[in-house]
């Protein structure tokens, strides 16, 4: 089966990001296809490489990056939601005249059309939030 995942909450504040990650791992472990993970609302905060959680806790952002690298998962951060919350890649930072970028490896920034496409292309869109 082909899955898409939507993550709507920030890491640490809400467990939704953790559950989404474990679900993504399970999807792949069971031999299913993961079409895309789309980060929306505060979920875009899953994509900041500046997150520095305590060493005795899980690193939510690094975990997503590792998943992208190991399993070639498409991690997409919504551009409009990201702009509101200060998440930017190199191009976005330049375009909006910012002095820094912070998008973590393995993520890319794109539009909401990617969410709709993820819903259309997948057999199941599974949403993680409150």
């Amino acid at each position: 089966m082909k899955f898409s995942i939507m993550v709507n909450e920030a890491p640490y504040s809400h467990q939704a990001a953790d559950t989404a990650y474990h679900f993504a791992k399970a999807v792949l472990a069971q031999g299913h296809e993961l079409f895309r993970v789309f980060f929306y609302h505060d979920g875009v905060n899953n994509g900041t490489r500046l997150a520095t959680p305590p060493q005795d806790d899980r690193n939510v952002v690094a975990r997503w990056s590792a998943l992208a690298q190991e399993s070639d998962v498409d991690l997409v951060v919504c551009v409009a939601a990201a702009q509101r919350r200060g998440i930017a890649d190199v191009d976005e930072a330049r375009r909006n005249s910012k002095d820094a970028d912070n998008l973590a490896p393995g993520f890319r920034i794109s539009g909401l059309g990617q969410l709709i496409e993820a819903a259309i292309e997948a057999d199941r869109l599974v949403e993680f939030g409150d």
Binding site: Y40, A80, G111, L112, G113, L115, I116, E117, I120
Partner: peptide
């Protein structure tokens, strides 16, 4: 609402 408006194009 932003998702609905973008989604309309599909």
């Amino acid at each position: 609402l932003e998702v609905v408006l973008i989604g309309a194009a599909f």
